[in-house]
Structure formats: C-alpha cells, structure tokens
Design a protein around this nucleic acid. Structure first.
Lengths: 247, 247
DNA sequence: TTTAACATGCGTCAGTTTGACACAATATTA
DNA sequence: TAATATTGTGTCAAACTGACGCATGTTAAA
C-alpha cells in the first residue's frame, strides 16, 4: 500500500472566510469568539462531499451573515503542518462534545482562504456551534486571532489590495446609492493611504462603472455630494475582463 | 457526531503542477502519459503530513525534473465534486496494484494547482509510478488531458498572464544569458500577441532587473544582439514588492 | 566582392495619462 | 450675513505610451 493511502496520511480540508464590511469609514472583519478558548477566529467550515469549495464558502458566508450572491473569492491555501498542531479549535470541538472521535481531531488541517465583501448594513452576524459571539471588528482593534488566522487575514488584505488595481471593487461593500467621497474612503481604507480627491474621481469615472444620479445626500454637512450607483452591466464586464490590460 | 466527521465525509487533497518551459520560441508544458488509460496528465502528487503544500509541490517538481529552488506558486484550488467522479487516475491507481483499498479510491479529491517556470534545457523529465512517459508538449499540440487538467492548465496560463503585469518573469525560464529578442519572444508567447520591439525594450529596461553584458550571440543569423542577465538583487526585490503600484 | 535582405540599436514625436494644484459653488455653523 | 468646510470642475506640466524612422552590423544571394 502506498504511503499516501495510509490512515495517518489523511489531510483534512477546511475553509476560512475573511468577510469584509465597511462602516463609519472603517474596514471591518466579521469574527467569531470561540465558546471555550474565548479566542477570536475567522468564520470557517468544512466541505461536503457534494459541494465545491466555493459552494461551501458561500454556505458558510450565508450562515454567518444571511447574505447570498456575494462576491466571494478563494485567495490562498494555508497548509503549514504546524498550523493545526496548537489547534485551539480542536480543543473547542472536543469540549463541545460534538464528536469525541480522538482520531479525527488528530488529523492535520489544510485550509482554503476565501474573502468576501459585504454590505455592513445588510449583514446579520450569527455565531456557529463552536462560538458564542459573532461581531464586526475594525482592523485596528483586531489583536491575536486563533491559530494562523492573523496570517490569513493579512494575506486576504494583501490580495484585495492587488486586485484593487485590476478589478472593480465596492458593489457588495457599499449601499445601493453612495457618494464619491464614500467610495474614495473605501479605496483609501483598503490601500491604507490618502488619494487625491479629483484624480480619484477622474480615474473611477474613466472605468465607466458608475451611474451618476440626482443630487442628494442632503442629510450630511456642508455641500451636498452627488449620489452614484454601480452600472452593473459594465461592472460585471470589468469583473470578468479586468480594468486594464497587462503590459 | 457531526456530519463532517463521518467516514464518507473525507475529502482528499492532491496537487497538480503546471510546469512551463520555453524552447524554440514555444511555450511548453511537462506532461505525463498514464500507464493504463494512456491519457496525458499534469504531474501531481499528494501531501505528507509533515509537509506544507508548497513543500509537496517542490518535491513533485524535483521528482519530475530534477530541479530545485524554482519559482513555484499556488494559483487555484480545484474542487468541483464531479472532477474526481470520472477519475481515470483512480483506475490507473487500481490497475497499478498500488493499493486495492476500494474505500480510499472512492474518496473525493480536491486539488491545489501550482505553476512553475523552469529552464527547458536544465530539466530532466522523469515519469512517476503511474505513468510511462514524461514529455514536454507545446501548448498547441496539447489536446485532451486527464480529468479537469485542461481547466487547470488554462487557469495557470491566465494567472501567469495576470502576474506578468506586476511580477518579473523569466529568471528560471531562460538560460543565464539571453538576448532581448529572446526575452521578448517569451513575453509574446505568454501574452499570445506581438509586442513592439522598441517599446518592449524600453519598458523592461525601466524595471532595472537586467544587466547588460558584452556583445555576443555571434552564432545566430544577422546582426549580433547584446546579451543580458537578470540582476538578481533587483529581480527579487521586484518579486516581493511588485513592479508598479496599484491605482 | 558587391549588394540585397534582415534583425538589432537607438531615437523621435504626438497623443494620453498622471500627479499636483487653483478656484468657484454649495451647504452648514457661528 | 460671514466664516468654514466640503464638493464640482478645470488647468497644466511631467511622465508614460504607442507608433514609427533610420543607421548599423551580419548573413546570404548576385
């Protein structure tokens, strides 16, 4: 019998979702607090035999937020053997009494990272069986996460920033109607630096993914900014074909 | 006992490597021909419990080519449930007598795709236990591959093309010393379109990843082009930090 | 040996994009 | 009503891009 078929050779697959939301000009991430270890963790899950990873991730996202049809993308596989050694999630699983199968817990876990961009207002955080809380956390207030989830979060952000240059971003993150300053704040938050207001507007508009609406946003202070909505047709085209050609 | 812990819930992980080489102005891929089904397939493998996926991929690459320390990157997870249903690899495994464990073969396989760029001249193709041939195939002559390996190859190319715009490419693909036309042919092949000779040179040189050497390449026809080598220091910096800023 | 053919090295130029900034318009607050 | 803060729109020079010209070096044909 070949090595890789032995019982001890089993590698279990899980997935972790980095669910981004945007609120009060802050980028937030949906986190769970584990029942027993009290550690904070990214929402995760397992794949059913009849599902693709993408379907499993979408299911996980829906179970934690109630949201469907969201931009959700795999970005990296995390497979360091050590990542599941000091596995507090395993402790939580054990303590939960969900399954006392010692053998199963001793397996090694390889996790596929997904990230999603959702509308903060529309999401309804719901914790799962292993956790007792589900909350939005601003990036700055996130400290130590369970296992290698800090790394996973970092990699998600890094990927998102890269994609920012060739994919349209914002459709699921912002409300239906939004202002140019709001969109700019989103980009600034994601990139981690200030952008020139006028150059930003010129660039975004050149992508033709926005529809300009009537003047509104009268509630705010000072001059009322115009409202925009995404032009879904062009937006989706840009998602498929990218915003600019390489080289 | 939770669903995902049941025996039937096992998802097995494998990896597939898309190993690119460049020869005679053609992009080539290293393929294996299976012993029993005679189908052509990407080199693949399994992960040991003590390895990361990256280490397993590097091991697979070395076993098929003899090469180490090569640019090797994961690019996508392939997890459609159907992908392992009509699994000729499984037939091959069965027929090989490697392990008649029916249960194991009935598992579902999720595969992590890696791609590598290697020097055609330095690689020594070696087939594995399940295959009888290991050969370089030009992209054009690749027809039907095993399972979803056509998809995997397509996705690898797509990823490579995207990376072309923000990562330096060529170090492991070309010999130590090469000419500007050779580098351009590589880019043209990867992008699938012609580039202007003079503009290409201007762009590449602006990246500062090349060292210009003495005039040589006297063997060829017509005017002798200059030889270049990669400036490894700048090359590696560019690999980490990218060639241009997003937005 | 001469000449035509061909690929390379190096340069030009106009159109476009980018980054930095000015100024008027509009809404709130004092 | 004036001061203040924020948005809408425009300008301009520098940098970048795409398209192309011409001289040079090497081979192959005349």
């Amino acid at each position: 019998m070949a090595d890789f078929m032995k019982e001890g050779f089993l590698n279990h697959i899980s997935l972790d979702c980095v669910i981004f939301g945007f609120h009060n000009n802050q980028l937030k991430v949906l986190l769970l607090q584990m029942k027993y270890s009290k550690e904070w963790a990214l929402p995760g899950g397992f794949v059913k035999e009849t599902e693709s990873m993408e379907e499993a991730a979408a299911r996980t996202l829906e179970e934690r937020t109630g949201l469907r049809e969201i931009f959700l993308q795999q970005f990296h596989v995390f497979s360091e053997p050590k990542r599941s050694k000091i596995n507090h999630a395993v402790k939580d699983l054990k303590n939960s009494g969900a399954g006392p199968d010692e053998k199963w817990f001793n397996q090694r876990f390889i996790s596929v990272g997904f990230y999603a961009l959702v509308d903060f207002e529309k999401a309804t955080p719901m914790h799962d069986f292993f956790s007792e809380k589900c909350e939005w956390k601003a990036l700055e207030e996130i400290d130590r996460l369970m296992m290698d989830h800090n790394q996973i979060l970092d990699k998600a952000l890094e990927t998102l920033r890269l994609q920012l240059s060739y994919l349209p971003i914002g459709y699921n993150l912002l409300p239906e109607k939004f202002t140019m300053p709001e969109l700019q704040k989103l980009y600034e938050t994601l990139l981690g630096r200030k952008l020139d207001r006028r150059n930003f507007q010129r660039k975004i508009l050149s992508w033709k993914i926005l529809n300009k609406l009537e003047e509104q946003k009268k509630g705010g202070a000072y001059k009322a900014p115009f409202l925009y909505e995404f032009n879904l047709e062009n937006y989706n085209t840009a998602l498929k074909e990218g915003l600019s050609d390489p080289m």
